[in-house]
Design a binder for these strands. Sequence first.
RNA 1: GCGGGUGUAGCUCAGUUGGAUAGAGCGUUGGCCUCCGAAGCCAAAGGCCGCUGGUUCGACUCCAGCCACUCGCGCCA
Length: 657
Amino acid sequence: MGAPLAAFRQSLASAVASRQGLSEETAHALAGQIREPEAGRGDLALPCFQLAKSLGLPPPAAAQKIAESLKDHPDFAQVEAAGPYVNVTLATALLVDAVVPAARVPGFGGSDSGAGKTVVIDFSSPNIAKPLAFHHIRSTVIGAALGRIHRALGWKVVGINYLGDWGKQFGLLATGFQRYGDPQKRADAKHLVEVYVKANAEADVDKVKATLEAPKLAAELLAQVTAAQAALAAASGDEKKKAEKSLKSLEKKLRVQRGIGEEADVLAGADAWLAELEAKRAAAELARPSIEARDQEARMFLKRLEEGEATALAEWKEFRETSIREFERIYAKMGIEFTSLEGESRYTNVLEATVDKVRQKPGTAIDQGAEIVKLEGQKKGEPPPMVKTKDGTTLYLTRDIAAAMDRYERFHFDKSLYVVAADQSLHFSQLFAVLKAMGHEWAEKCTHVAFGRVHGMSTRRGSVVFLDEVLEESVSKAREICVQSDRIDAANLDEAVEAIGVGAVVFGDLKNLRGSDYTFKWEEVLKFDGHTAPYVQFAHARACSILQKGGGVPAAVELRHLVLPEERAVLMALARYPEALERAASELEPSLVTRAILDVAQTTASWLTAGNQDRSRRVLVEGDEALKGARLALIDAVRNTLQHGLGLLGVRAPRAM
RNA sequence: GCGGGUGUAGCUCAGUUGGAUAGAGCGUUGGCCUCCGAAGCCAAAGGCCGCUGGUUCGACUCCAGCCACUCGCGCCA
């Protein structure tokens, strides 16, 4: 099938090389420099800065010379030197023949570049006992999209939903349930979440610790501010600048802690603040024994699990299944599938053996009761990887080491991806470093596909939004709009509504570069205008509708009739699509696919709307069957590409909306 | 304090790996439905690309130093 754009670049580069007597090698290098020109200046642009050197001419003269030499080349309809650039317009025949037939074939954009290779993708991976909150959408849709993209490129894909089904949080749920759980609701996922949230709050030893230390820290900070103020008053010259800076940063810290604004005097009411913190401290002191006991209880539950105690295991199994059922309900709604649903518990039996392997190489040491890995080249201040707690239980890292080794044995992967939030970069750099130190060369094939946080959601402030809730809301908004449409018959309404509502949310996430953070806002996730899923779906539906009205694409078409600027824009957008897929896979960046199909949708919308004013520019143009046939073929290519691209993202494309 | 990330239009974000006059969406202003689908199209306004220096014919892009925000930094995952 090939990538048309790459072929165009190559043919331009080869043409230049052969006419200037340059080697194939330089031709190849040249191809890499070719880009797209400014709007209205053709299809390809070759910057001549480096060529100028080898030709011994100033860049504009080199461009002139090269342009002259290409003037009669059959592949190029127009060649123009513009300053140091050569702008080339492709011959229509070349462009249309390379793009349209290929783009009409189902699976356009895919390739076999990954044939014989295996990628393991660890994604979604929620914790049992915790709710599936909105932010879980990120790992879920990014991982699923990367899976589909790789599959389209010929890779064998193993998608693993690696549940957090082992660990202290499970102890919190189990012991919490004994206290607050409604025995009638043992299988109610929402109830389990309530219990977990409550149990977690009542065993929050970190918060108690912080509250206990708060008055002391606050007093210190106040003293520092006072001292800094005095220092500033006494300072002069260079010293003064420094003193100002340090005071400013201390004041800012204080403002944040006190929760006061820019204008307020930082020291005003400090006594009352201290008194308040002191009161909280006293309360925390009283609550401390019970909180520590609850925490201990949860830890002990994990201990019992790790020792294989039957009743604990039975309870664990039951809660686990309840959670999974709830997760699967939501995955089904989003069309997410996994090759394997497993979890940390898979490795409970091999953890001792895993720790033993680490002990042999690179070795471990006991530090403050915990067992840490001896790594060379550790920078000071960097926390050492830890494989066992002071209780003798294992940690996340221990289990991930076991899992990574297991995955390599099972799949002999060429890539192993962990689609996990960027917060955990340290964990993954430790994981990979330990694996490497154990002698596993394949550690280099492992990548942390980090993504940014979703801000504005905090469990503590109770502002957590459930993923399901967002999907529901979006679907109901889609329904409101769809029922007003006379284009869509009752039989297909539900399907379209789901596709649009869920699609908008999924697409909204996959539009941003995965690395960047964003803030959750209802009006953002529920956006249907502008560059959103409904926009692309709309273009697709229009294409379907025109194809239907036109009676489909004729058997024989003369594509050379596609000469409108609007049509060329669509052709170029289609030509870029396969390359976007390859890059999305190599850069692990699904947003490249999102943006590529937005480009197709947008150029198509402009093209089709141009036909509203001017009947001669319509696809279903009257009185010219040959032209109509060519345009139908192009609109079919658009239809096929949009459907494929949306599919890769996990968004369905209704035929009407 | 140490390490990572981010800083581009009022807001949300792209920027093809160093190339021409830095681009979209939202919002604002103006225009386009006797309709091949207005969830759309066309146009306008809006920019010291965080700051300063360096490398280069050329820097939003690379390097150094600052500033701001943010995440992480031992027994959670």
